[in-house]
Design a protein around this nucleic acid. Sequence first.
DNA 1: TGTACATCAGTGAACGCGCGTTCACTGATGTAC
DNA 2: TGTACATCAGTGAACGCGCGTTCACTGATGTAC
Lengths: 205, 205
Amino acid sequence: MAKAGYHHGNLRQALVEATLQLITEKGPQGFTLSEAAKAAGVTPAAVYRHFAGRDDLIAEAARQGYEIFAGLMEYAYNDGQPSALAAFEATGRAYLAFARRYPGHYMAMFESGLSVNANPALAAVAGRARAVLEQAAARLSEHMPPGRRPPASMVSAHIWAMSHGVVELFTRGAPGSRAPFPPEELLETGIGIYLRGLGLLPPDG
Amino acid sequence: MAKAGYHHGNLRQALVEATLQLITEKGPQGFTLSEAAKAAGVTPAAVYRHFAGRDDLIAEAARQGYEIFAGLMEYAYNDGQPSALAAFEATGRAYLAFARRYPGHYMAMFESGLSVNANPALAAVAGRARAVLEQAAARLSEHMPPGRRPPASMVSAHIWAMSHGVVELFTRGAPGSRAPFPPEELLETGIGIYLRGLGLLPPDG
DNA sequence: TGTACATCAGTGAACGCGCGTTCACTGATGTAC
DNA sequence: TGTACATCAGTGAACGCGCGTTCACTGATGTAC
């Protein structure tokens, strides 16, 4: 890792990691290209060997984040085993765990204001992550009475919105800050009530 | 408004409005004090007559946002009339309407990373807004079987999280961007399913 | 194994720029008489 | 109504700074022979 010479060895990735660290500390808009270079132990000019600029650096951090995210979601979903319901709940927990464990990636992905669709590689992997959520919702829908079930994409949007809201409002020292409950509990109970509303859990489970 | 002389007349508020405009366009971290001054037609130095710096400017924008927000929520809640349920749903709609109508305020409040508790005036009015949500949830709880009802503060946190998530993910050109449904519909159906899960709406209403 | 050479990652100096912040000032406004 | 004066909001020049970006360069690494 520390090659400590004229050539860095793996500067590209070191810059991404410096960026993630800086985003975690100061937010996606709160740092400069020069800071990232310095954090990686390198001259600002060296950054241009690997990235087009600051935005490109953030985009790569986000891309790696989506990669990890998609992997975690797929792993949690586990092909719908042992049951559609259990797998669905596992993806919810995985969402929150990802946000906690990879805050820099999460911020680069969802709070940097970058346009996912402007970057094809980014759009592809983001789509892969979204597909897991939607498949989980679709499999869940099969257990609902056909006439009354909302579209699977709507269910996945609801769950995504609640998960994201919990992360943003209660995971950091944010506005709701008194943090009445642990985020994990908040999300778990919230999803539980929601699933009961869909008729997928017993009325007073 | 346009006094067009050496003295501006109402520079303080003009600066806040310039700030709101800039936040809407470039995000809470994406503009400078000098830009705000220029947008208000004034020298950067003049800003210091009214604000301690850029953060103070953002804090005042957020404070005014919380003021408007609290007022809208109180108006929508309408003292729980005509029913606890209807009033609760109205606050949900008001939340989204606020985010749409006052995007600069919303971003200053929830996306600027400012610490609400660092500023007493801000903390006070933010608390007032939160109190409306919690009261709405508390009144709703009274209609639930006592043994099984979750705490009112949890219910209000759930709803707040889902509302915020819908705003962040589906209201702007954000990551979920294909925007499968109008945000208003998404929030309304989401809250509906959630309330059904609480036993407050008939199982297949 | 040794030498010559090509490659290219990173340097460091340079540039012009806009930033935040300060300061003595200026001139518009309001008020006392 | 008119004059003198106090107030204070906004000016404009100045400062030092760090930024993004470019450029010719340097020196470490890899490879051909």
